Amino acid sequence: MVQRIQSLWLLFAGICGFTTLKLPFYIGSKGNTPAEDFTAVSSTYLMILAVAVAVVALIDIFLYKNRGLQLKLGLAGFAGSILYLGLAFSKTKQYDTGGIALTSVFSFAIPVFYLLAIRGIYKDEKLVKSADRLR
């Protein structure tokens, strides 16, 4: 049984991060070549960033005793996921024609899950501080 909802949000962010390695973000073609899938594996920087964002989310789950560090890593993961989206959009400019794939939802879900987890961690920290004040 999961005691903290932010652990689920971080788990979902990690799963979405790893699915971006296989599922396409963009489907497009260059010139006369047939359409190809653009995934995180298509670019070295995107692959490293996607794996880093996913691993940070999974490591962040186990830092529940140190909420300050968990919050900082959550913010870093959120910033990395925004950077990932920006880099992915800049890489799609190399195609002449094409469109965003339906499976790009996983890429857009990562920062949302991070924000939900950060909100939960912040609420926990606030609750603990208010309980310490009452002692």
Rank of each mutant, 00 (worst) to 15 (best):
R119P: 03
F18H: 03
R4Q: 00
Y95E: 01
Y95M: 03
Y26F: 14
L127M: 15
K123R: 15
V105K: 01
D124H: 07
T33L: 12
Q3P: 00
Y26M: 05
L10G: 02
L85W: 11
L49S: 04
L134M: 09
A131L: 08
F108G: 07
L116D: 13
K30W: 03
Y45H: 04
A101N: 13
K93E: 03
L127I: 07
L134D: 07
F106D: 02
S107Y: 09
F78C: 12
G98H: 10
Y95T: 07
D96L: 14
R4G: 00
K123E: 14
T103D: 10
V2F: 14
F62T: 10
I118Q: 02
V105W: 09
L73K: 00
Q94A: 15
F12T: 11
P111K: 15
K65C: 06
A88Y: 04
K72E: 13
A109V: 11
V105N: 02
K129H: 02
Q70D: 11
T19L: 11
I15K: 00
G31L: 06
L102I: 14
I118C: 05
G120L: 09
V51L: 05
G86T: 11
L115M: 14
P111Q: 13
V56Y: 03
L11N: 05
L58T: 05
G120I: 08
S104R: 14
I5V: 12
K22Y: 07
Q3D: 13
G31R: 03
K72W: 08
L21H: 00
N66R: 13
T39I: 08
M47I: 09
K91C: 09
G28F: 09
L87R: 12
A35Y: 11
L85V: 02
L102Y: 14
F108S: 00
W9K: 02
F78A: 13
D37P: 07
D60G: 09
P34I: 10
V112A: 07
I118L: 02
Q94Y: 08
L115I: 11
Y26P: 00
K93M: 15
T39G: 09
A76D: 06
R4A: 05
M47F: 10
K65N: 14
